[in-house]
Design a protein around this nucleic acid. Structure first.
Lengths: 155, 155
DNA sequence: ATATGTGCAAATCCTTTGCACGTGC
DNA sequence: GCACGTGCAAAGGATTTGCACATAT
């Protein structure tokens, strides 16, 4: 989905839900969709403020759920205190692989997941709505040297 | 593993790590191992206080990581603000199925998970250390009536 | 015109921490 | 005895919310 198409979808979704199309919401949307890596709410605030310095933290937190509901953004919880977000390019069959040293998140295709969720849920007479596979892993450099080359300077 | 064996393991682990065997730690251990369902830190505090009313919240939060390190307790993060815990009966090949309405957590066997983790990590040249499969699902009663029979009264 | 949205700062939630006192080894 | 553990209350970080003002429809 192109960014233009995504923006249209966002605007339609807002209207459909009786929400207004505000400059702040658009700036937050643009900021999110300019990203190719995972970002936090705080980072999104910074990015959005570069486009519109009137954007506040509160509005970022209020807009994120809307973008998630509309499936334009995906929330990725890796069990840390804060959550990560990513523009959703349509692929829900994904697993996250997280480097235990640098916290870098890799998204990879996991087409078997849907089948598995169904198998597992049917044992309990449940119907799956979503599923997530999270793999914590070490990269080679970390195994050999104890340091991950991707590790940020501060932590 | 019997509770007696687990208690012995806990005591040995404490000693081995140069930690002391205190009444509070033992009470927290007993409280955790009396449980068959998932519990939160706050619930564990309540349970432990029934055994030893000198137990404080701080000590619960300081003891949980020790029990997790020693693999006596498993931490289960389902993407809510708080974390859940469960006495570990030795099975690490488990997935969590969570009812989206009542937040009840079911643990089910997932013998394929290790293979998944390896498959997925090898694409990135990484070595998996741990993995987690989470399935969000609806129970039949929720699908039909919009209410899950397990749903707690307050939410 | 008015129902929604907004920024700000305070509040909330869960968890962690500093400190003076208590206690297992 | 003394290092380690403890309870308390205060601090912490991420997120949510109440309120008066602003603005999209």
């Amino acid at each position: 989905m192109s960014n233009d198409a995504a923006r249209d979808k966002f605007k339609s979704y807002l209207s459909k839900k009786g929400h207004r199309v505000t400059n702040q919401r658009l700036a937050i949307f643009e900021a999110a969709f300019a990203r190719t890596e995972h970002f936090t709410a705080e980072e999104l605030l910074d990015y959005a403020r570069e486009l519109d310095d009137s954007v506040s933290r509160a509005t970022v937190y209020r807009t994120l759920p809307i973008m998630i509901e509309s499936a334009l953004v995906r929330e990725v919880d890796i069990g840390k205190s804060l959550k990560y977000y990513l523009p959703n390019v349509g692929n829900t069959q994904v697993a996250q692989v997280i480097c235990v040293d640098c916290d870098r998140i890799f998204e990879i295709n996991a087409p078997f997941m849907e089948w598995y969720g169904t198998t597992v849920s049917s044992k309990l007479n449940l119907t799956p709505c979503s599923q997530r596979l999270q793999v914590n892993a070490q990269c080679d450099s970390f195994r050999k040297t104890g340091v991950c080359k991707n590790r940020p300077v501060k932590h």
